[in-house]
Amino acid sequence: MNAAVRAAVRMGIIQGHNMLAVHDGFDGLAHGQIEPICWTGVTGWTGKGGSMLGTKRTLPGKLCEEISLNIAKFNIHALVIIGGFEAYVGGLELVQARERYEEMCIPMVVIPATVSNNVPGSDFSIGADTALNTITTCDRIKQSAAGTKRRVFIVETMGGYCGYLATMAGLAAGADAAYIYEEKFSIKDLEMNVMHLIEKMKTTVKRGLILRSEFCERELQICTM
């Protein structure tokens, strides 16, 4: 995200624009946490993780009046919104508020930046590739690939309700199974995977690797008898 901010700031300056930085997302835009940012203000941001400007998941729906006042106060002519699904929803809410607030009638663009890779209308988001590489090089997966005997590693990935990280990491690491929210599974499916691992342990490959996305169990279908 910091690299994206750096690129946006410097490209804007090259194009002759005065760039402003908004701290803490839509909440900061509503409460006037806005300041000019120059070329040197983003020096060294490329290699820094997280967000130097700060983030909040606050959506602008109930803050539209304050946001419109600050857009006018700071003479903002366009918005570059960098973030994940909440950024997309927030941008949509600002567009929908144009009927009530003419200050919102400015160009707005959302740059997808989330490890979940779940922003509608986008194929790939900033942070997803870094997260995927981090998962596939973690110690548990490396131990599994190295041939640790008679062990099954279960690795949970981030991603919320999006199974991109678990699926792609499973493919990259050669996992035995990957459980994701989008694909429903039952106790019977879990039992079949356990039986697969039992049979696998009887061969020369005495190891197993399971990946699960963080909310996958919410699609677990439990059958009662």
Rank of each mutant, 00 (worst) to 15 (best):
V115F: 01
G163M: 01
A97L: 13
Y164N: 00
A128L: 04
S116A: 15
A146E: 09
V109L: 15
N75K: 15
F124V: 07
E99F: 14
L92S: 13
G84L: 03
G83S: 09
K73D: 14
G174Y: 11
L53N: 08
M168W: 04
V109C: 15
N118I: 03
A178D: 10
N133E: 08
C105Y: 15
G49K: 14
G127E: 05
Y161G: 02
G170R: 01
I76E: 04
V95H: 11
Y101E: 12
V89P: 00
T130S: 10
K142G: 05
I81Q: 01
S125Y: 02
I154D: 05
L94C: 11
F124H: 11
V119H: 02
M52N: 13
P112L: 08
G174S: 10
E99M: 14
D123T: 07
M158V: 01
A172R: 07
S122D: 02
G84Y: 01
C138R: 01
R151D: 04
N70S: 10
T167E: 07
I154A: 06
K62H: 12
N133S: 06
T114H: 01
S51V: 08
G61Y: 12
Y181P: 00
G147V: 06
V152N: 05
A178T: 12
A166T: 01
R98T: 14
A166R: 00
K149E: 11
G84W: 00
P120D: 03
E102G: 09
F153C: 02
A87T: 03
L63G: 01
K73W: 13
N70W: 04
N75M: 14
I126H: 01
E156P: 04
G174D: 12
V152P: 02
P120Y: 02
T130N: 06
S125L: 06
I67F: 09
R57P: 06
G90V: 03
D123S: 08
V80I: 15
S144E: 09
K73V: 13
A166Q: 00
F74G: 06
I126M: 08
K142E: 12
E156Q: 08
L132C: 05
A173I: 02
N118E: 11
P107T: 12
A172C: 10
V119G: 01
G174V: 10
R151K: 11
N133H: 07
R140L: 09
